[in-house]
């Protein structure tokens, strides 16, 4: 990590110095791209398979991973929330925030309690159909209005859905999935391509 940030800083410093030397020079996009590559190389080199959760227990973390995968699965176009590192991101923030610990840690307990009551096993051990049955209930507020026993689950899921989206759409995979183009140096801003009618 240290190397990565030093590299980026070095590049930025070089750019800033160049700026003073020649007023007409713009930042070479290549240099910026190089900084990003450095970051990704370092990331790729780090082991990702055996992540040790900072807050959640191993079983709770397995549940978190399962939920993230259900909230944003992979499809033919792109990878899903798990591949994008959403569970690690959520675990990191939760380890630092007591409110998140209650909402997510407590929420997963609630989910396991609900699954045990209805299917005789924890959520992760449920079949795909059973998981879908549970989520089809707690993913919508209107179900909590009809059955107040679901309201805590709905609240938990709503919070987790936002965090999963945060984790996914701030990842390289998620950003590419949306088709965002930018964060680069341009000589001219091209403006709007022709507007479709």
């Amino acid at each position: 990590m240290a190397n990565q940030s030093i590299s980026r800083r070095d590049i930025l410093r070089t750019l800033a110095v160049g700026a003073a030397g020649s007023v007409l020079q713009v930042i070479p996009a290549k240099a910026a791209a190089y900084a990003h590559q450095m970051v990704h190389k370092e990331k790729a080199a780090s082991p990702t398979g055996n992540y040790t959760p900072k807050y959640f227990s191993a079983t709770q973390y397995a549940t978190l991973v399962a939920l993230c995968d259900l909230i944003i699965p992979k499809d033919e176009k792109s990878g899903g929330a798990v591949e994008a590192g959403a569970p690690e991101f959520i675990d990191l923030l939760t380890s630092e925030n007591e409110k998140y610990q209650l909402r997510l840690g407590g929420g997963i307990f609630w989910l396991d309690g609900y699954s045990t009551d209805h299917y005789g096993k924890r959520f992760v051990d449920c079949t795909a159909e059973q998981k879908k049955e549970v989520l089809d209930l707690i993913a919508f507020r209107k179900n909590a209005k009809q059955d107040t026993a679901l309201s805590q689950g709905v609240s938990f899921f709503s919070f987790l859905r936002n965090m999963t989206c945060d984790g996914y759409y701030t990842s390289k995979i998620g950003i590419a999935d949306l088709g965002y183009i930018g964060n680069t140096s341009l000589r001219e801003f091209p403006g709007c391509p022709p507007l479709p009618e």
Binding site: I71, I72, F140, F157, N162, Y169, T170, G174, Y180
Partner: peptide
């Protein structure tokens, strides 16, 4: 418009549309 995605960008959509899975994506 098509700003760099960031934290909280889809909170509004989630609050309104809810759901999960491929539909959400």
């Amino acid at each position: 418009g098509r700003d760099m995605p960031g934290i909280g960008m889809f909170n509004g959509m989630n609050r309104e549309q809810e759901g999960y899975g491929l539909t959400l994506k």
